[in-house]
Design a protein around this nucleic acid. Structure first.
Length: 452
RNA sequence: GGCGGCGUAGCCAAGUGGUAAGGCAGAGGUCUGCAAAACCUCUAUUCCUCAGUUCAAAUCUGAGUGCCGCCUCCA
């Protein structure tokens, strides 16, 4: 599959992150189903916006592009997005682009004007098939000033003549740089070939980006199918309005990561079906955080029960837990098979967690059934990209020495409690809570965890 | 103006013909020295409005209404 990656002129914002998380989830599910997924995600590291931004910051455009490629990987890692099989860069595929443009010119689908090369949309019969519009419709509503040199107002640039101070490459039409869409054609054909399975991206890429990609690619391939399926995610909105860089109403993923762990942001982003708009709001993030914690708590309670000495010999419990695990797998698969309905899949995780909690409550002892249920929950969580066994806050500083110290602290507190010295017991609990360590008393003794 | 999408409880959110998943918040209860977590019970006679099709509609059709998106760089 090919997913349109970022144009690297800035940090990615949360709306961009939604797309990367969504397609990562799709990829992970396909892998889970046993597909050998070849996942290509490009970097568009040369374009108007990068050049503009480079000038503003007094930075070489190509250096700026490289910088934000590196920043992308930091955010992607925090969101537990798997690296693509290949991450090709536009600037490293100029010769491939030139070859395609030449092919288009020789078949009469493109023409050169003063060092620019344009694609002739009215020579491509299916133009508009993806976005469901016709050249007539678009002409009527055109809000762009028409470049008189174009044969048709909707013709788009494949190659742009160089301007002073801009990055440029040598081409048969003189020095210049590629147009916006051609890099995806060049890189997808190079790494996947014609007729690959899935081409994905954000909904705002349907037109013109993907429409133009189809036109130039299928034109170049003489009608052969470019991609079999096109998938687009809906937008992230803020106060019901699209979060976008041009409206300025965006938060970078980096900013948000200072407030919430990456896994919470991911959990929030996948809590709504990918084709539905998702409204961004801190309150919604908090709700997502609580929901994710519920699943993590369930795994933790099960883990504690499994680490205990002894075993449960309750056949009913065993049978129920095995049954719950099987049902969860089935329901999860059914939800995900239906257009990657991660929101519905969540419900199956919560239901399994609830069943596990119920039995842990009744009999907190190791059992095969509990082990199976816990394993299932962890595996299904992993398919969506969550590590439920190792929550982010606790993933940090929990080392062996701390474990030993906490064991002593809990013993001291236990003695206080045995002497009914509630003041001391509560002081220990409250003081540790300030430091992010939560103590909980249970009939089986006190337990503790780190919570940022 | 052209094209498309959406409107489900206090909030988030599944559900595209068979009688409203799940989460958050809230109420009551169990447990507990207290707290937390967990568990149990409760919380939409109803899915923006009206009309229609059907034995049956949140789901289909029509009209209305509100919101959003694309048509210009954007994931």
């Amino acid at each position: 599959m090919y997913v349109c990656g970022p144009t690297t002129y800035n940090f990615i914002h949360v709306g961009n992150a939604r797309m990367f998380v969504v397609f990562d989830m799709i990829r992970r599910y396909l892998m889970h189903k046993g597909y050998d997924v070849r996942y290509v995600q490009n970097f568009t590291d040369v374009d108007d916006k990068i050049i503009k931004r480079g000038k503003e910051e007094g930075m070489e455009p190509l250096v700026l592009g490289q910088k934000y490629i590196e920043e992308y990987f930091k955010d992607a890692t925090a969101l537990n997005i798997l690296p693509a099989t290949v991450h090709p860069k536009a600037t490293e595929h100029i010769p491939e682009m030139i070859e395609i443009i030449q092919g288009l010119i020789s078949s009469g689908l493109a023409y050169e004007v003063e060092g620019d090369v344009y694609f002739a949309v009215d020579h491509f019969p299916n133009y508009g098939k993806l976005s469901g519009r016709t050249l007539e419709d678009m002409k009527a509503g055109a809000r762009v000033e028409v470049d008189e040199r174009k044969h048709h107002p909707m013709d788009f640039a494949l190659w742009k003549n160089t301007k002073p101070g801009e990055p440029a490459w040598k081409s048969p039409w003189g020095m210049g740089r590629p147009g916006w869409h051609i890099e995806c054609t060049a890189m997808s054909l190079k790494y996947l070939g014609a007729g690959f399975d899935i081409h994905g991206g954000g909904g705002d890429l349907v037109f013109p980006h993907h429409e133009n990609e189809i036109a130039q690619t299928e034109g170049y391939l003489k009608g052969e199918t470019f991609a079999h399926f096109w998938m687009h995610n809906a937008f992230l909105t803020i106060n019901q309005e699209k979060m976008s860089k041009s409206l300025g109403n965006f938060f970078t993923t980096r900013e948000l990561l200072e407030k919430f762990p990456g896994e919470v942001i991911r959990f929030y982003l996948l809590g709504t079906h990918y084709r539905s708009p998702l409204d961004f709001d801190d309150q919604n993030l908090v709700m997502a955080q609580k929901g994710l914690e519920r699943l993590q708590t369930s795994i933790r309670l099960a883990q504690q029960a499994l680490e205990r000495v002894g075993s449960s010999n309750n056949d009913r419990i065993e049978a129920e837990l095995f049954k719950a695990a099987i049902e969860a797998r089935e329901a999860f698969g059914k939800a995900m098979d239906d257009d990657f309905n991660s929101a519905l899949a969540y419900a199956t995780l919560f239901e399994l967690a609830k069943t596990m909690n119920g039995y842990v409550q009744e009999n907190p002892a190791p059992s095969k059934g509990l082990q199976e249920a816990q394993k299932t929950l962890i595996e299904l969580g992993e398919v969506l990209g969550f590590d439920l066994l190792h929550p982010a806050p606790a993933r940090v500083e929990k080392d062996e020495i701390l474990n030993q110290v906490m064991e002593i602290v809990l013993q001291i507190r236990l003695r206080s409690r045995q002497k009914k010295d509630w003041e001391m017991a509560d002081f220990i609990r409250d003081a540790l809570k300030d430091k992010g360590i939560i103590i909980e008393d249970t009939p089986q003794g006190a337990r503790w965890q780190i919570k940022k």
